[in-house]
C-alpha cells in the first residue's frame, strides 16, 4: 500500500476531525459518513472515514470494500499492524480511504489515548477525518465525538430521533475534549435525513423548520427519502457517487455548505401541492 500524501508541514493544523453522530440508531449515520467522505474526496480533499462501531462493522460494506479488510482499528491500536497497512484505498477516488473497525466483542477496546495517537497520525496525512459513530451514548459513541472539531448531527424528522439528537448535542457541549479543555466548542451542524416533503406538506412529518427550531443548530442539509440510498448500500457505493440520485445530490450540496459555499436547499418542497391544500392552504 502506498502512503497517502506526503508530510504536510504546517497544514497539519488544519486537519479536521468530523464526528457523524445521532444518538439514535438507524437514522443514516453510516450512509452519511460514507456519502460525506466521498463528497469531500470528490472535492479534492484527502479524506479518511473511520468506523467507530466496534463489534458491529458495517462501514466496509457501505463503502464496498468488505473483502479488502485485512487489518483493523484495534490491530493498529494494539500495535499488531501499522496505520498504512490498515487503511484501505478507495478504488473509485484516490483521495478517499477507509479505516475499518474490528469485529471484536470487547466494546471497550477503543482506549482513548490510543485513539488519540491514531488520530494524530492520520492528521499528518489527511485533510478530513470522518468518524462514523455507533448509536447510543456509550463508550464507542463518546470516543467518536470526544476528539471532534466538528460534528454532524444526523436526525430524522421523527420525535425519538430529534430527542436523541438533543441529548448528543448536550454531550458534545459538555464531554468533548474541546469542552474539557475550554477550547472553542465543537462546531455542530444538523443534517436532516429521510425527509419526505409530501408527508411534510400533509402535516404528517415535522418540517425542516420545526426540527431546526427545536434543536437550534445550523442546518447543513436536508436529504430526501430516496430509493437510491438502499440501492447504493446494496451495491457498496457511497450515495454521493450516484449523480442520478436526489439523495446523492443533496449530500454533495451539504458537503459544499460544509466547505463554506452557499447553496440553496433542494428537495424540501413536494412535487406539487394537493388540491385541498391549495384550496384551504394553511398559513
Amino acid at each position: 500500500m502506498t502512503k497517502p500524501g506526503a508530510a504536510r508541514g504546517r497544514e497539519d493544523l488544519l486537519a479536521k476531525v468530523v464526528a457523524i453522530t445521532s444518538g439514535k440508531g438507524g437514522v443514516g449515520k453510516t450512509t452519511t459518513a460514507a456519502a460525506f467522505a466521498a463528497g469531500l474526496a470528490l472535492r479534492g480533499h484527502k479524506t479518511v472515514v473511520i468506523d467507530f462501531d466496534v463489534g458491529l462493522r458495517n462501514l466496509d460494506l457501505v463503502m464496498g470494500c468488505e473483502r479488502r479488510v485485512v487489518f483493523d482499528f484495534i490491530n493498529v491500536i494494539n500495535g499488531d499492524a501499522n496505520l498504512n497497512q490498515a487503511l484501505i484505498k478507495d478504488k473509485r477516488n484516490d483521495n478517499l480511504y477507509i479505516f475499518p473497525t474490528s469485529q471484536t466483542r470487547d466494546k471497550d477496546a477503543l482506549k482513548r489515548d490510543a485513539v488519540e495517537r491514531v488520530l494524530e497520525e492520520l492528521k499528518q496525512q489527511f485533510d478530513f477525518i470522518i468518524c462514523d459513530s455507533p448509536a447510543g451514548i456509550e463508550h464507542g459513541a463518546v470516543t467518536a465525538l470526544y476528539f471532534a472539531d466538528s460534528a454532524i448531527i444526523v436526525t430524522n424528522p421523527e420525535v425519538s430521533s430529534v430527542r436523541d439528537s438533543d441529548r448528543i448535542i448536550g454531550i458534545l457541549a459538555s464531554r468533548s475534549r474541546r469542552a474539557e479543555r475550554n477550547e472553542p466548542p465543537v462546531e455542530v451542524n444538523l443534517l436532516l435525513t429521510r425527509y419526505d416533503p409530501g408527508r411534510v406538506a400533509r402535516g404528517e412529518m415535522l418540517t425542516v423548520e420545526d426540527v431546526q427550531e427545536i434543536l437550534s443548530i445550523p442546518l447543513l442539509g436536508v436529504i430526501p427519502e430516496s430509493e437510491t440510498v438502499l440501492r447504493a448500500s446494496n451495491t457498496g457505493t457511497p450515495v454521493a457517487f450516484d449523480e442520478e440520485s436526489p439523495a446523492g445530490r443533496a449530500y454533495l450540496d451539504a458537503v459544499a455548505r460544509f466547505l463554506g459555499e452557499q447553496r440553496e436547499m433542494r428537495f424540501v418542497q413536494p412535487e406539487r401541492r394537493g388540491f385541498f391544500r391549495v384550496l384551504f392552504g394553511r398559513a
Partner: peptide, 17 residues
C-alpha cells in the same frame, strides 16, 4: 396535524430535559 402534535410534545419534553 400529527406533525404539530409531535412538535409540541418535543418542545415540552426537551425543555424539561
Amino acid at each position: 396535524t400529527s406533525a404539530a402534535i409531535a412538535k409540541e410534545r418535543l418542545k415540552i419534553v426537551l425543555a424539561h430535559e
